[in-house]
Write a protein that binds this DNA or RNA. Structure first.
Ligand code: SF4
Ligand code: SF4
Lengths: 132, 132
DNA sequence: CCTGTTATAGACTTTAGGAATCCATAATAA
DNA sequence: TTATTATGGATTCCTAAAGTCTATAACAGG
């Protein structure tokens, strides 16, 4: 069980967008160079972030991506969900209904993790990074 | 990001061992039938559970598996770690050392989840199941 | 000491999904 | 109109999970 590589890229890309100048959108080609990944591949993740409403895109010359919400309103969970989806970590073969005790335990543990990730905003780490 | 199917099987197998009579070990062939999975495949997971010290095995006639510790001392986390391993959910390409803020956030969220799973003992759900 | 029973191990095949590339198309600023 | 940029789909590549097969080791019972 691992987070996909795509999540890694998305987190770094978002972090870069935060530190970038907010007036000029930053294009995927610059972003890809910074992260060391191909443009076309990275663009897939960026599109997911757009569809999740975390960033907005602009085509054409001087286009690119910029944040849609404030950094204080974007959590780690938002980004992870945008890339990985929101399905549960645990899916059993035969579904015995909502009273299944195994699923209840695993899902509650999942909720614990998501609660932490949901409270951790991207602004929190951005501040700490710039403090260095 | 998902738990492997093997974890699913292991959880169910452990739960079955708990409800089974503690004097007679239960063999993989019976277990496999109950869970609807092949013997040889299931035996892989059972062996992992043995190596993790959760259950003990006996070869030969009337052999099989039984719990090694008391059910109150076996947590969901024990089982999951035995199957999935203990590696972190997040591994970045280039490791920038322990001061990396992204990793700190993700690992702390992981710790939250594991704390819950570590406190949830298999005896807890076994009791509830038999109460029905 | 045999024999049937059971767990363990390794090699192997199949399957599924992540990772990445390529190319075509749409949108838009200059 | 043109250069620039994002979006989308199809496609390939690769790795790990999922599952099978077969051989071997350990052991209880007669
Ligand atoms: S008991 Fe729960 S986890 Fe197990 S098969 Fe039924 S619904 Fe699925
Ligand atoms: S900043 Fe952290 S997560 Fe990103 S590459 Fe460096 S060590 Fe890895």
């Amino acid at each position: 069980m691992k987070y996909s590589q795509a999540t890694d890229y998305a987190l770094h890309a978002m972090l870069y967008l935060v530190t970038a100048a907010p007036d000029k959108p930053v294009g995927v080609q610059l972003l890809a160079e910074k992260l060391g990944v191909s443009q076309t591949y990275l663009s897939k993740m960026m599109t997911k972030l757009v569809k999740a409403g975390l960033i907005q895109s602009a085509t054409g010359a001087n286009g690119g991506y910029r944040l849609r919400r404030k950094q204080e309103d974007i959590s780690f969970l938002d980004i992870i969900h945008a890339i990985e989806g929101t399905a549960s970590l645990f899916e059993c073969s035969m579904d015995h209904g909502s009273e299944c005790l195994i699923q209840q335990v695993v899902m509650e543990s999942e909720r614990q993790m998501e609660q932490y990730l949901g409270n951790k905003k991207i602004a929190d780490v951005a501040k700490l990074m710039q403090a260095k």
